[in-house]
């Protein structure tokens, strides 16, 4: 059993927090984990990606080879398309439908969403809307964790315990908001 997950987004969207919560949950459940991150220059509003590899046997490379990713999880629609060459032919794309338009040549949003819908297996998520309903637009990354969770070999309570841990420092309300966001996303994945 292995799950190769590419987590994509734009600097500042919380890609690393997603990666960290899934990685911690996988370790807790006894899996091998390798997680590659992007630090430094690229974090300034540029394209950001984290490769997360989970397996029940040892993992060698921290990056995912071409055509091997089981899932691309993207905080942004255009960014979900950037790493398609890494997606396996049976792979799944789970993408937020809210664009971050900070470049002048961003394509027509409709054509970006259409390209995602045209993929063999894809899910578009109204992450911003669901996060707002849960209490904070900033919780959209937890909506995305929820939305992908059905495709991960991880238990809901494990993931929720690490979400709780990640936001504990910000108060109970913040924890509840993020848990609600996660559950709203998870409802889509079931």
């Amino acid at each position: 059993m292995k799950r190769d997950i590419i987590i994509a987004g734009v600097g500042g969207q919380g890609v690393l927090s997603i990666s960290t919560i899934i990685a911690a949950s996988a370790l807790k459940e006894g899996l091998h984990v390798k997680q590659a991150e992007v630090h430094g220059m690229a974090q300034r509003g540029g394209a950001v990606v984290s490769d997360l590899r989970l397996s029940d046997s040892p993992i060698h490379s921290s990056t995912i080879p071409r055509g091997c990713a089981d899932v691309i999880l993207s905080m942004e629609p255009l960014e979900s398309l950037r790493y398609l060459e890494y997606l396996s032919p049976e792979g799944l794309v789970v993408a937020s439908e809210s664009p971050v338009i900070n470049i002048s040549d961003y394509p027509e949003l409709e054509s970006v969403l259409a390209a995602i819908k045209n993929l063999p297996r894809s899910v578009l998520v109204d992450a911003d809307g669901l996060a707002r309903k849960a209490g904070s637009p900033r919780a959209s990354n937890m909506v995305m964790v929820g939305a992908v969770s059905g495709s991960l070999p991880l238990r809901q309570d494990t993931l929720e315990s690490f979400i709780t841990e990640a936001f504990a420092g910000k108060g109970e309300k913040m924890v509840q908001t993020n848990i609600d966001a996660f559950r709203a996303g998870r409802a889509l994945s079931n």
């Binding site: 509003g45 394209a47 255009l78 398309l81």
Partner: peptide, 28 residues
């Protein structure tokens, strides 16, 4: 490394419908 070892390339998903603009880092 696969290629250097003489293994065949893996099939990858290709995007044909859309030009993909780069998203370089920028000042806050």
């Amino acid at each position: 490394v696969r290629k250097a070892l003489g293994l065949s390339e893996r099939t990858a998903t290709v995007l044909t419908t859309l030009p993909l603009p780069g998203r370089p880092p920028q000042l806050c």
